[in-house]
Nucleic acid binder design. Structure first.
Length: 863
DNA sequence: GCAAGGTC
């Protein structure tokens, strides 16, 4: 039987190009998570059956294990040494399962991922999913190295297959771990520190990142230049003359001087003579070069500065134009076209366009130029129009972007612009003056890109030695002006120059600092830092300026390049870099008061914000309700914060108090027209087991029924109060083997199903991804626990016979355990750990962050 | 809820 070859590309479009080239269009296509193209052909001298499919970027992304997900329970310093796990980036896409299924029975795996570090890293993600092994005999892993997806390059790559480069892949692993740990540790720390202190911070998250923070730094740097700018007066003059009917205002070679007396002296010297002598007449033929191919960064700059489209929107539009086949792949660094590129074909597609059709037809008949040599980053060709379009087909904004891409492309194959530059030089009283004339002989590409045209300026004839009277020459006063706020387009240039982000991520970083409210986009797409943005950067500068400098990114890049080149060991580099950041982090925490002093001057403290709402159970004084996100109550005398459910409204609930702790109850109403309401005790809400189960910052999660848990309204098992939010946890399932408590199904956790013991702190994972989990009236004959019923989705059921319903006892049933242990790509079911819940009124810990007194116990079964 | 990098 012919051996099977599985080929995997980075995105569906590349898989299609490869399959088309190798099969000459004779293939069959199967739909799947990503399409699979099949055909027969020759491979390494044998007849083989090919399957070509793709991933969609990274299959996995890095995160902390669930143990470290709780912001309150985790010491941020521990994050630097914490383990990390790779989880599927898009679990619903089932890419991993898809690859594993397609790899069955294949003897060869050929990796056609993009030829950059990220692509090399994805190679190993694919290898992991397919179950291929580098040392296996009989099944081989091969890497295709290609610089474009032309038939020639693809065939050449297939003839020269190599091994994937582990060192480059490891460099990406290193970058991921460093970015994750540094970003998350700083973000969690400063978010909690400042959100716990100030009421009017208008950002839900106060984030830190080695790309986003230097990006913000650039904006604030310009802001500081403007704020500290001191205008200076200067003086200048320009002789006014008339020659052959031309009125001319000559330019002074000194341009301007900053001393009035000196300026006045020069003016007097010139006026005393009052006659200019022509000292030079020169003519130069000059050339303005046509552009190179268009890459992403240049497209984004033009989109922002000329089309008033932000990078984020521009990329969304470009993405759409690409998927609809109007332009080539929009994420590329290259400005050079491959030697074999078919320009005639691209031009042909545009020759009926009403705006530039004429220009194109003349290029096709008179001959066109090859674009100016740009740089080839080895990724994708420059952004090129592929298919003709009209404004009606695309809509206004997409059309303007498409129009630019077309004009730019046509510009690249048009002639250069040629013009004559005439410079006349004058002298009077020892001072030098000049004027410049421009005459265009060939418009070239500027006729299709008129905004780049050379502006004609005619001059009369002058001859050397000629004398001309000055008709007027006043001394003029001017003043230096500060620069304007940083434009988005300038920011993109700075980011590119300093290696902050990539073509794909630059728009994301800019969008982040806008959405987090660190900068605002003003008219002309100029970025003005907010109070929060400037305070943050000034804060970093007051503690450790490295944190907001672009060098922080270059440092990381430099370190991981050593790994990529095989000059340093992956784990040594990660440890070394993390050690440095740990030190920086500790110092930052120690010196946070420097930054806090700036916040104090800028923002109002919790005590100054909000309005009095409900009584504190500890001191019986009224607490303040702070409505800005995250919504919370603050007790001024106890200095405690009590977080509330988000995305809804809060009011006092009948002045009832919780019988457990004496805190007045509040009524939470979810936003929306049919928003549900429920009363809750602010203290109970912030205590385990709620802490870390429902997110303190997130909204209440609804069960599948759309209700707040099946048994909402049932009496609470913790306290006798009928309206306590504890009542939402219901349904005893079985006895906890650790203590005499009852395991309770937590309905608001769906679909992350789990059980809690109401006595000790056990938390038990249930089959994750189940569509519904419920109790039945049956009991287990062995241990007398309630039998639970697990309802899986048809498509995702892990049951081997495809059944969707399974019932069993959580304590005794073997299959249920194996369901929980079952590997489904990554561990299908995650183990959870409960947090200690100290019991009794006085023994309860602080509302937030204080109660680390109880060691979390393991789940009763070590799943 | 958190980073940055792929891609849709």
């Amino acid at each position: 039987m012919a051996p099977k070859v599985l080929m995997v590309a980075e995105k569906p479009s590349i898989a299609l190009s490869i399959a088309s080239a190798l099969s000459h269009g004779r293939m069959s296509t199967r739909r799947g998570s990503t399409d699979v193209h099949e055909f027969d052909g020759m491979f390494q001298g044998f007849h083989a059956h090919f399957k070509v499919t793709s991933v969609t970027g990274h299959v996995f992304s890095l995160d902390f294990p669930s143990k470290y997900q709780n912001w309150e329970a985790t010491d941020n310093l521990d994050l630097f040494q914490a383990p990390v796990v790779k989880l599927e980036s898009n679990p619903k896409g089932h890419i991993c399962r898809h690859l594993s299924q397609e790899a069955r029975g294949c003897s060869y795996l050929v990796l056609w991922l993009d030829c950059d570090r990220e692509g090399e890293n994805i190679c190993y993600e694919v290898i992991e999913c397919t179950g291929f092994n580098e040392n296996e005999v009989g099944r081989r892993i091969l890497r295709a190295r290609f610089s474009s997806v032309t038939e020639k390059d693809i065939l050449e790559a297939l003839e020269n297959l190599v091994k994937p480069n582990k060192a480059e892949a490891l460099a990406v692993d290193a970058r991921q771990e460093i970015d994750l740990k540094v970003g998350v540790a700083f973000t969690r720390f400063q978010t909690r520190y400042f959100q716990g202190k100030y009421g009017n911070l208008d950002s839900r998250i106060i984030s830190y990142g080695p790309c986003q923070t230097p990006t913000l730094g650039f904006c604030v740097q310009r802001y500081m230049q403007i704020m500290t700018f001191k205008p200076e007066k200067f003086w200048y003059f320009s002789p006014y003359i008339i020659k052959d009917g031309y009125e001319l205002q000559l330019e002074w070679d000194r341009n301007r001087v900053f001393d009035f007396d000196v300026a006045a002296m020069f003016q007097k010297l010139v006026l005393d003579q009052n006659v200019l002598e022509v000292t030079g007449v020169s003519k130069n033929e000059e050339n303005k070069s046509r552009p190179c191919g268009l890459n992403t960064v240049n497209l984004l700059k033009v989109a922002s500065s000329a089309l008033a489209l932000g990078p984020h929107v521009a990329m969304q539009l470009a993405e759409r134009l690409y998927t609809q086949g109007f332009i080539s792949y929009p994420r590329t660094e290259s400005t050079a076209y491959p030697a074999s590129f078919d320009f005639r074909n691209v031009l042909g597609a545009q020759q009926n366009n009403p705006i530039w059709g004429n220009h194109i037809r003349s290029l096709l008949t008179d001959g066109f130029h090859k674009p100016r040599m740009g740089s080839d980053a080895g990724d994708h060709p420059p952004i090129t129009p592929m298919r003709a379009a009209t404004e009606e087909m695309l809509g206004n904004d997409a059309w303007r972007l498409y129009q630019y891409i077309c004009q730019h492309f046509i510009g690249t194959v048009s002639p250069d612009c040629k013009y004559t530059r005439t410079k006349i030089e004058f002298t009077a009283g020892g001072e030098l003056f000049h004027c410049v004339g421009l005459h265009v002989s060939t418009k070239g590409f500027t006729s299709i890109m008129p905004w780049l045209a050379v502006k004609e300026k005619n001059l009369p004839q002058f001859t050397k030695g000629e004398k001309i009277n000055i008709l007027k020459m006043d001394l003029q006063e001017g003043s230096t002006t500060p620069p304007d706020y940083l434009s988005e387009s300038e920011l993109i240039s700075l980011m590119e120059k300093h290696g902050i982000g990539t073509d794909a991520s630059i728009p994301v970083h800019i969008n982040n600092i806008c959405e987090r409210n660190y900068v605002q986009v003003n008219s002309g797409r100029r970025l003005v830092p907010t109070a929060l943005g400037t305070t943050l950067i000034r804060g970093y500068q007051s503690i450790d300026a490295d944190l907001c400098l672009p060098d922080i990114r270059s440092f990381i890049e430099h370190q991981i390049t050593m790994v990529a080149k095989g000059k340093a060991d992956h784990s040594h580099v990660v440890q070394h870099v993390l050690q440095q950041f740990t030190q920086k982090f500790s110092y930052f925490v120690k010196k946070i008061e420097n930054m806090d002093a700036l916040f104090e001057a800028q923002f109002s403290t919790l005590a100054e914000s909000g309005r009095l709402l409900s009584k504190c159970g500890k001191c019986t004084r009224y607490m303040k309700f702070i409505s800005t996100q995250p919504a919370r109550l603050y007790c001024i005398s106890c200095e405690e914060v009590y977080y509330l459910p988000q995305n809804g409204s809060i009011k006092l609930y009948k002045e009832f108090a919780c019988p457990l702790d004496g805190f007045e109850l509040v009524l939470f109403s979810m936003s929306g027209s049919d928003g549900k309401s429920f009363p809750l005790c602010p203290y109970c809400y912030n205590c385990p087991p709620f802490e870390g189960i429902t997110t303190l910052f997130g909204s209440i999660k609804l069960g599948n029924s759309g209700k707040l848990g099946k048994g909402a309204g049932m009496p609470c098992f913790l306290c006798p109060h009928p309206t306590c939010r504890h009542s939402m946890i219901t349904q005893g399932v079985c006895a906890c083997p650790e203590c005499s408590g009852t395991l309770i199904l937590d309905p608001i956790s769906a679909p992350k199903w789990r059980l809690y013991c109401n006595m000790c702190n056990c938390m038990v994972s249930l089959p994750q991804g189940a569509h519904r989990i419920s109790t039945t009236s049956k009991r287990c004959p062995d241990c007398d626990s309630l039998i639970i019923e697990v309802d899986f989705n048809k498509k995702t059921t892990p049951l081997s016979d495809g059944a969707t319903l399974y019932s069993g006892c959580i304590l005794c049933d073997e299959l249920l355990h194996s369901l929980i242990e079952m590997k489904h790509g990554k561990s299908f079911f995650r183990r959870g750990r409960g947090r200690g819940r100290s019991r009794g009124r006085g023994g309860r810990g602080r509302a937030r962050g204080g109660s680390k007194n109880d060691d979390p116990k393991m789940s009763f079964r070590d799943f």
